[in-house]
Design a protein around this nucleic acid. Structure first.
Lengths: 344, 344
DNA sequence: TTGAAAGCGATACCAT
DNA sequence: ATGGTATCGCTTTCAA
């Protein structure tokens, strides 16, 4: 076996030499341009295959006016507390169909890392970066990308940029309150966590306005942080139990928070939903399992990914049809067993 | 705002022109080579910053004998049934520290996609591909990469290649059986799923040999498929209940399978672990939650990722210290509440 | 310490 | 239908 570090991949010149034609002809034949004879195309493809030719994207990138650009994605996490793995999958699949690859950067909520990823992807001249930023402070990132590399925002932290794919959390709030109100609940609390970002803000505002519409008193609690909302929910509900201020229904800003609430309620001898109804948000895979059977909201993750990459492809002139570049999806209420009629 | 599609990023020539020096000097200054005066370096950095210079990786890649190569990773899934998100995070973080970016491809268990990702990454001349292949059939992938781009295997499907980072599932099997035996169990079943790959094979073999060592009769069931082991476990345990052949302890090949088993046992009126002890494998985040409290095995995901990227960096001459290129980790038994003494 | 020229692998443009 | 040559942005090599 050859030494890994010295062997080189064959180039179009190698193919040209073997066939006794110019490298230009080979280049065109490989791209299947129409002013090359079918015979030559066939020969070129045969030799390319024989010698194991793999195009050099760097060279193509440099030389071509319209290179096949790759795509970047930067997320704060791909753990279970987010849904970005599903979004990424949709993006990666569609990109592969178009012969493009996707850089993924997981910033782990470090702004320094987020910026590093952004720089590395810009150096690699991606055609667009799909980004779920950590904070709403994106000036530094925009400075790196300048006007050259478009940023497509997902995840809701940023909504006033040219390219955004968002979720309408106000609509979720309205649906959650309406659902619980219909079940007879009048004491409906909202459980939030810190930090207070755009998505949290929307949930709060939507909840308050829905409660007021029903003539009910809003009850909002905020506890813990976004990196561990399970414990946040668990601690918060324990506190309310101890203070004897248990509502009959709770809408939690995340499924994990709802799970923390449910586990703790059960530990303390309460039944869900007979004593307390609990509704989550995100439709995590585990929420459907027997122990939780969680009523929640499903975000159209695949659609979000598809929409984001369609915008990216559109910006790279790959997609013909014009595309809406500032999109909002609503989440769908999934009614399961953790919410039920109020106890009389 | 300028039109996205016409604006261009500044090049070293632009910086050179502004400063009245050659582009060579700028190139060297930016790379902090030692034969450039401190004064010029400072000036170059200032101007580079002012004009928003971002290096062009393609050009560097083409020109340089030792380019800063990116890294590729290809996995069958990054959903909750695997741990590749954690492995990826470790890889992505370390890569960023070295100024490299990571391509991620999610094949969704499609061999066609897997191959497409491999080609795209090779075209982009990554320095190495870290791969958790779908099957053990990797000839086509090796043909694409040739001798030029090393493949580093993770995930256990492939173990006879130069670069592998693996888990010792035989050791897990031994520890699981020993743990349950110590609790007094003599009727210990193994729950597997299809298809029968290397990892499953190791679990089976390790289990059988551990049972025989204790003088016990192996009881192996195999049901369902790897893409939904929750249902596989659920269906399998239901069948045993109906047939009245319930063992006192079960080791499941995955946590999801164990959760399916536990949920179904509880639904059918059995208690865990009082009636049946259940042990999983993988230490999924959700296993620790109240409803499951699952005894399981923790794979050193971050270590696996770090080892894989260290091999990659080593192959790219980035790491000085020689590195072991065929590594096996053992999983650690995490004893929680789903396993307990046998019922007398 | 700095610069001129060649070249990396491919494409664009203009000839033939 | 095919080829020659310049070029993309940067590094390397050699010369000054």
């Amino acid at each position: 076996m050859q030494n890994t570090k010295t062997s080189k991949k064959p180039t179009i010149k190698d193919i040209a030499r073997i066939l006794g034609v110019s490298s230009v002809a080979v280049s065109r034949a490989l791209r299947d341009e129409k002013d090359i004879s079918a015979a030559l195309k066939k020969e070129v493809r045969r030799v390319a295959n024989e010698v194991g030719y793999i195009a050099n994207a760097s060279a193509r990138n440099l030389a071509s006016k319209k290179p096949v650009q790759n795509i970047g994605m930067i997320v704060p996490s791909i753990g279970i507390e987010t849904a970005y793995n599903e979004v990424f999958k949709a993006i990666s699949t569609k990109a592969a169909q178009k012969g493009r690859a996707v850089f993924l950067g997981v910033s782990d909520r470090s702004e320094a890392l987020e910026r590093k990823y952004c720089v590395a992807m810009c150096e690699n001249r991606v055609g667009a970066i799909i980004m779920a930023p950590i904070t709403s402070e994106i000036e530094a990132l925009k400075a790196v990308c300048r006007q050259d590399i478009p940023l497509i925002f997902v995840g809701g932290k940023v909504d006033n940029e040219p390219y955004c794919v968002m979720l309408n959390y106000r609509a979720s709030a309205r649906k959650a309150v309406d659902h619980l109100h219909e079940l007879g609940h009048r004491s409906i609390a909202l459980f939030l966590y810190h930090p207070e970002n755009n998505t949290i803000k929307q949930k709060r505002e939507g909840y308050i306005s829905a409660m007021q519409r029903h003539g009910l008193e809003p009850i909002v609690y905020s506890h813990g942080t976004s990196d561990n909302t399970y414990d946040a929910g668990s601690e918060l509900i324990l506190q309310l139990i101890q203070e004897g201020r248990l509502p009959t229904a709770i809408w939690c800003a995340s499924d994990l928070m709802a799970m923390g609430v449910i586990d703790t309620l059960k530990n303390e001898g309460y039944r869900v939903p007979q004593d307390v109804s609990v509704v989550g948000h995100d439709n995590l895979h585990f929420g459907r399992f027997g122990s939780y059977n969680l009523t929640t909201f499903d975000a159209p993750k695949a659609e979000i990914g598809e929409t984001a990459i369609n915008i990216a492809l559109f910006l790279m002139d790959e997609l013909e049809a014009p595309v809406s570049t500032n999109v909002q999806f609503e989440c769908e209420l999934i009614v399961r067993g953790s919410s039920g009629p109020v106890k009389l």
